[in-house]
């Protein structure tokens, strides 16, 4: 038969090709679209470690048309997605499934303005992050006093400062040697990167605080999308959106489980934050949350409304 003209789309992301994001999510997604279009759409993937795998450039690459599709972190560089980043505020959610769906449901009415030029294929967020330490066991707020902890985002830095710890910005690849040399006392991460960066070798204590999450985007260049055939557009739509977002809860559980099992096998101490202590942290962090929203409101008029909408959606999903 006469095959339609082939189009090759470039996909980039910043995680190593052994990561679940690559093996469970992006590769199968591209295969699904290729099969659905009978081979019309092919993909070339550039994972972390390649020149196109720089975490800070994912959004720009898509906008510039250097790649067609990218998966990246909203928080790096910071401040580009102030609306979406409100999900990072402390104690909003500790569940990847609920957080991912909330983002997707709020996207059309509340978050869309910050994705100009982008066709948003999916938004998601990881399970509640933990506080991992090497020598000092953390159970209460007082244990955090003076600890130097690596943090992923300004929201988490503000949270740690309010709780008495010293936040330290550091590239994820440098965390291992800095913990090993006791330059920092630990790091704030979900379970998954603890395994992918080999950190269980240098950590001993894990406090399951469930205190924060971090959002991720999966986006396509809008003009490129509009220029595709109707079949291709339909296939991409079918593979993306709500159907894709719904998968992230289980995926994150699976990716995190590997890190937790590794820690358990190594005989580490894993503690959950007690309900009373959790309330103490919440109370202590109220001013941080308010200040962060006020700061965001300088850029985004309805920051408070978006935060409230996030809380309401998450409450519907049984969070808090």
């Amino acid at each position: 038969g006469t095959a339609a003209a082939q189009t090759t789309l470039k996909v980039s992301h910043y995680l190593p090709p052994v990561h679940g994001i690559h093996t469970d999510f992006i590769v199968p997604w591209t295969e699904q679209v290729t099969a659905c279009t009978n081979g019309e759409i092919q993909f070339e993937i550039f994972p972390g470690g390649t020149q196109l795998g720089n975490v800070a450039k994912q959004q720009e690459q898509v906008l510039a048309g250097v790649v067609d599709i990218a998966h990246g972190l909203h928080g790096i560089p910071r401040g580009r997605f102030p609306r979406t980043s409100l999900i990072e505020l402390p104690f909003l959610t500790d569940d990847a499934g609920a957080a991912s769906e909330t983002l997707w449901e709020l996207y059309p009415d509340h978050l869309a303005p910050e994705y100009k030029g982008l066709k948003v294929l999916a938004l998601h967020a990881h399970n509640g992050g933990l506080i991992h330490t090497s020598d000092k066991k953390v159970e209460t707020m007082d244990d955090l006093k003076g600890l130097r902890l690596r943090t992923p985002s300004p929201a988490v830095s503000a949270m740690l400062t309010a709780l008495g710890a010293t936040p330290q910005g550091l590239p994820p690849g440098e965390v291992y040697e800095n913990i090993q040399k006791t330059v920092i006392d630990g790091t704030v991460f979900p379970w998954d990167p603890v395994k992918s960066f080999g950190l269980n070798e240098v950590l001993k204590y894990h406090l399951d605080a469930g205190a924060y999450t971090v959002p991720f985007f999966f986006v396509m260049n809008e003009r490129k999308y509009e220029g595709l055939s109707d079949t291709a557009k339909t296939c991409i739509d079918e593979a993306s959106g709500a159907a894709l977002v719904a998968k992230f809860g289980d995926w994150w559980d699976k990716w995190d489980a590997a890190g937790r099992q590794e820690a358990e096998a190594a005989g580490h101490t894993i503690t959950a934050l007690s309900p009373e202590e959790r309330q103490r942290w919440r109370d202590a962090l109220k001013p941080v949350t308010e200040a962060y929203i006020a700061e965001t409101a300088k850029q985004v008029d309805d920051a408070q409304a978006i935060y409230d909408a996030m809380r309401a959606k998450l409450a519907e999903k049984g969070q808090q």
């Binding site: 190593p16 052994v18 470690g49 690849g173 395994k195 992918s196 080999g198 070798e201």
Partner: peptide, 9 residues
């Protein structure tokens, strides 16, 4: 070690 999930230690 990160790329191949081999023990860094």
């Amino acid at each position: 070690g990160i790329l191949t999930q081999t023990s860094i230690g």
